[in-house]
């Protein structure tokens, strides 16, 4: 596989991103290394080719935002909104992720080895997110679809106003948000969890050590009797 290196100390982010947005037929299968990211925002956003991008260090906001098809690995920590609105592909954060990781992501897989900040998986729309550590408060807020696996603990208000997304937590949950309840894990959900653990490098972790959470569906139709829940 051909590997191309870009050094953000000497090349502008705009040049790098525009190269990565080039004609897919010329980019597919290429391996890209981005050196000296130094926390720059918006690295490798809007990718839409079969690229394998490695960011050698910490990334700022929205790294790999709106990703399609590409595989992006961040060999450091990521700022807010990593892989936000991802459509497909694979984003791997080897360090920690800040707030709103995987926000509104529609597809693909986001793996965070460390902890994630507040509002992880907010308004999730179908992607899979696996967090090796713990997640901050208000995670999975209004999460609509997709699967969200947390190997550590979850903060306050997990799954507040959640729709049809599935949340799996191995550690402690500080509190559940409005309309989020513990579910009984059925065989299909257990398989989803087992597959995700395997795909994200946690094949040795038993799905049975997780509890599952989802929507109680009591707020799906606005009713005055529920006003106190908001």
């Amino acid at each position: 596989m051909e590997t191309l290196k870009f050094d953000l100390d000497t090349k502008s982010l705009r040049e790098v991103n525009q190269f990565l947005h080039g004609d897919a037929s010329g980019l597919n299968g290429k391996s890209i290394v981005i050196e000296n990211p130094n926390g720059a925002h918006n690295i490798a956003v809007g990718l839409k080719a079969e690229l394998d991008v490695t960011i050698k260090g910490h990334a700022g906001y929205y790294a790999a935002g709106m990703n399609q098809i590409a595989k992006v690995t961040i060999e450091g920590s990521a700022g807010s909104g990593v892989a936000e609105n991802m459509m497909s592909g694979h984003v791997h954060v080897k360090g920690f992720a800040s707030n709103a990781a995987g926000a509104t992501a529609n597809g693909g897989l986001l793996v965070i080895d460390g902890d994630a900040g507040l509002r992880c998986a907010i308004a999730l729309k179908g992607a899979d997110i696996v967090v090796g550590g713990s997640v901050g408060s208000f995670s999975a807020f209004m999460a609509q679809a997709g699967n969200f696996v947390i190997l550590g603990d979850a903060g306050e208000g997990l799954g507040d106003s959640i729709y049809e997304a599935k949340v799996f937590v191995r550690g402690k949950v500080k509190s559940l948000g409005a309309d989020c309840e513990e579910k009984t894990m059925n065989a299909e959900d257990r398989q989803i969890l087992a597959d995700l653990l395997k795909k994200s490098g946690y094949a040795d972790v038993s799905p049975d050590s997780f509890k599952q959470y989802g929507s109680a569906r009591t707020l799906y139709h606005f009713h005055v009797d529920n006003a106190g829940a908001y």
């Binding site: 982010l13 705009r14 991103n17 947005h21 925002h41 918006n42 956003v45 809007g46 700022g60 906001y61 929205y62 935002g65 709106m66 807010s80 909104g81 936000e84 707030n99 709103a100 926000a103 509104t104 509002r119 907010i122 308004a123 807020f141």
Partner: peptide, 20 residues
């Protein structure tokens, strides 16, 4: 969902510019 305040908005706008 992924930004709060004017400083974040600046980065969000930059992200959309980069993508397009």
């Amino acid at each position: 969902p992924d930004w709060t305040g004017p400083d974040d908005l600046e980065i969000k706008i930059a992200e959309i510019r980069e993508i397009t």
